[in-house]
Amino acid sequence: MNNRIKTWLVDKYLAWIFLALLLSVWEWVVAQQWVASYLLPSPTQIFHTTVELWPEIQAATLSTAHSIAWGLGLSIVSGVALALLFFAIPLARRAILPFCIFFQTVPIISIAPLLVIWFGFGQPTVQASAFIVSLFPILANTLTGLQETDPHLKELFRLYRPSPWQLIFKLQIPSAIPYILTGIKISAGLAVIGAIVGEFIAGGGLGSLIDAARTQQRVDLVFSGVVMSSVLALLLVFIIEVVSRVLLRGRPYLRKS
């Protein structure tokens, strides 16, 4: 019995216990004044700042969330659509995909100024930035998923002479669902990065809050911004998980045949 409780505790709460330990050590180190609190504020100080400036932080978080939702949403729609196009028309894939890969290698921070020139300061640039960084993983994963349809199932379908549409909608897209979901989860994290980077340059949201706090030497506020952006990313992954479960309605798309 004792052992079972121990295993359960270890499985469920080990990460939380470690986090608590880390925060306590951090708090203690700052309290001992081994590190100046203007360089490394204590966790409680960060918490107090967050509570105190909550209206500003909340507004910034919502603004960033809004940009991420647009950028990531657009990525999902166009990434899946492009993958389908590339899959259906191999000529298009060979002509365009290399440029997508090239585009992916250009750091977003170097394109961001260009986006400001095109879209101006504010949300459109931030949305574009989130979109650009999050497009490729969805595109690449979806394409892989479509191409990796089980050849045995393809042969089964062939027995009944399906139309190309039947093949795509009844076999290839369902087979690609696990890949699409993985792509979306990777992209969700990247979209947060893209949005924050966009906001550093174009203003608004958590990016600009962090940047402003930096110039004012408010390290505690910088930490608040950082914590909120990772909360956003975690929340996003959680939402994707829930939405995908609802959409899949318990169908075992994720299990290989």
């Binding site: 045995h152 199932l153 089964l156 379908f157 027995l159 009944y160 002479r161 399906p162 039947q166 009844k170 076999l171 369902p174 169908r251 075992p252 798309y253 299990r255 290989k256 045949s257």
Partner: peptide, 23 residues
């Protein structure tokens, strides 16, 4: 086929109905 080769995300009944849908 030698193995059942069922579509994993379709129920038993939906698997049986698959040929009719495709045809």
């Amino acid at each position: 086929f030698q193995e059942p080769r069922l579509v994993p995300w379709r129920t038993c009944l939906e698997n049986v109905l698959l040929p009719l849908q495709l045809l």
